[in-house]
Design a protein around this nucleic acid. Sequence first.
DNA 1: TTACAATAATTGCACTGACAACTATAGAAG
DNA 2: CTTCTATAGTTGTCAGTGCAATTATTGTAA
Lengths: 162, 162
Amino acid sequence: MRDTKEQVTAWMNLQQVNRVLEGLLEHRVRAAADLSLPEYEALFRLNVASDHPLQMSEIASQLINSPSGMTRIVDRLEKDGLIARETPPDNRRVVLVKLTPRGRSVLGDAEKAFRGALNESFAAHLSEADLTELRRLMRKLLESNGAWTDARCSPGATPGTS
Amino acid sequence: MRDTKEQVTAWMNLQQVNRVLEGLLEHRVRAAADLSLPEYEALFRLNVASDHPLQMSEIASQLINSPSGMTRIVDRLEKDGLIARETPPDNRRVVLVKLTPRGRSVLGDAEKAFRGALNESFAAHLSEADLTELRRLMRKLLESNGAWTDARCSPGATPGTS
DNA sequence: TTACAATAATTGCACTGACAACTATAGAAG
DNA sequence: CTTCTATAGTTGTCAGTGCAATTATTGTAA
């Protein structure tokens, strides 16, 4: 086994970066649109999918989220009128989720805040090369742990993306 | 604002790496020593501190954990007999926490599992240069977001470190 | 057709994590 | 000495997360 100490500090640093950034991003998104980060991400995913609504399980898998967690997030978003559930007649087991107009609008605000915060935390301090390098390393780690899925992050057309 | 898309995918990848590795590590530590990752990390911190016991708040700050969460983790560890609480007479506000012999032994098992899993996930697929680069990037991100603290990860002498 | 397996989502339970309110102790000001 | 403030930890509450068990629906096989 290779020397472990460097790996441990690398892991701790990665974990810490994740937490700190999560905190920053959540704070900004909450302030701008009163959404938690998972809620924002769920809406984001629905928007990326553009027209066609998504099944619960599809959203969950894109967020690496358990189906149970998805249910509860969608509950809350539905209660707030940002998304709508609907079960298709041809397969009454599934639940299709789609953005409401209000959801789309709220997502627009959230997205501006999110991207602004991400830009301040990331790009403002990492060079272009750093960013590329970061993505390469993350991809390598995902691939070697059998978790690589191409991360789609732009829809057909996102209203607030500008 | 710089182009945002690359940043978003970098962020998503980082988040995913964090989750995937957390899952792997937790699973292994749970199997080897029936500890959750936060529980393991708390024990680990106590061990790093060697002799002198730590205050609740000290452990919490090292784990970027809220004091309330710390209380509950320590509750559980105490119930299982892995740590002991003790309040010093000279300042009866604080609670000092220290490993019990049993805690030290369980930590030994957990640490072997943890380091093994980390090695498989990390070093087995990243070159030495990659690892260095990873740490550099993480450190840069932490510094630029005002969260850099040198991550101590070895005690005076760790029993199970071999 | 009836019984059995597979799929999709939900619910219950336990743990973590953060924030606010609360208790107890200690230190400082009057 | 008393009062006020600061510190350390605990408790309550709520959101997120995962696992196991459950419900509803669909598909398959006897």
